[in-house]
Structure formats: C-alpha cells, structure tokens
C-alpha cells in the first residue's frame, strides 16, 4: 500500500462519523469496550478503503457498511458467547440503529442540555460512572454504597436523561 495523503474532506468526514459509527456498533454489540474494538477495526478498514469513497455521497452510510462487516466478523468470533445478542435481535435492530445514527448530532446537543438540567449530585454521579476506566461497580466501591443501589441510581438518572432528550428533540423538531 502506498501511503498517500488523505483529502481534508475525508479527514473531516472521518472524524465527524466517529461518534455515530460508534453508537451504531454499540447498539448491536451491547458492550462499550467491545464496540470500541470493533470501531478500531472498522477505522483501519475505512482509511484503507479511502479511495473507494465517492465524494459527495453519504460518508456515514459508506462507513456503516464497513462497520457492519466488522460487526459480523466479530460476532462470528464470539458465536459461542452466551451473552452475545442473537442474530435475530441484531437484524431486528440494525435498521433502526442505522437510522438513528443519522440523527446523533442533535441527540448529542440535547444530551448536553439535559446533563445541565440534572441535580448536581446526580450529574456528579453519572459523570463519575462514565469517567474513563470506571464502572458502576468501581463507583459503588468508591462511594461505599451497595453496588445494586448505585446501579439503580444510575438507571434512574439515565431514564431522566432519556426522557429529557426525547422532550428536547420533540421540542426542536417542532416547526413552531
């Protein structure tokens, strides 16, 4: 492979789709770290296949195709994992996940807004949870609270965020 400079447009697009792509993969995999791994593989592929991309077409859709292939491969490797999602499930949600990845921009903005609306204590909790390398379990140990109760609090906060995002999006899509 002869290294050749990538176009600025490609780099911009490439960086732009990282998040939606990641979310697309995550929906079909369930594990944040596994999804990262797959994204990494896909990224290698995307860069390698950069000249196959037709400028002016939907970059994200193109990148998704590549990611879908990586997901398939990864799933085959884990075919015997009991905690893996079933084929039926993945095919049921793949379409939805793809569609959803197209709107991740506005969703992300809504999330920012919604995080601000949380009670400070809730916000702190959810941030600590998603601190790099952290997990709900670690957090519980840190706080000296039972893991289950921390899980529940996190679940509650996620629910609030989910509802808030939904409201925000509805508000923004409202033409008035």
């Amino acid at each position: 492979m002869t290294p050749k400079p990538l176009s600025t447009e490609f780099v911009q697009e490439f960086t732009r789709v990282q998040r939606p792509l990641y979310l697309y993969i995550l929906a079909q995999i369930g594990s944040v770290t596994d999804a990262e791994e797959i994204l990494q593989e896909a990224n290698v592929d995307i860069v390698a296949k950069c000249d196959q991309f037709e400028p002016g077409t939907n970059f994200l859709a193109w990148a998704r195709q590549i990611a879908t292939f990586e997901i398939l491969q990864w799933r085959q490797g884990k075919a015997r994992d009991r905690l893996r999602f079933s084929d039926e499930f993945v095919s049921a949600i793949a379409h939805e996940a793809a569609e959803h990845s197209e709107t991740s921009e506005s969703e992300r903005n809504a999330l920012e807004h919604c995080l601000k609306k949380l009670r400070p204590s809730d916000r702190k909790l959810i941030q600590s949870r998603y601190q790099p390398g952290s997990s709900g379990k670690d957090l519980a140990e840190q706080l000296g609270r039972p893991a289950n109760s921390v899980y529940q609090s996190l679940g509650r906060i996620r629910r609030m965020l989910l509802e808030c995002i939904q409201r925000q999006l509805a508000l923004r899509s409202d033409p008035t």
Binding site: A27, A97, E107, L111, L162
Partner: peptide, 10 residues
C-alpha cells in the same frame, strides 16, 4: 436504540 445511544454517548 435510544437508550443504547445515550449510554454510548456518555
């Protein structure tokens, strides 16, 4: 998909 997306974004 929305919940997964939230988790992913966070």
């Amino acid at each position: 998909v929305r919940a997964s997306s939230l988790h992913g974004m966070l």
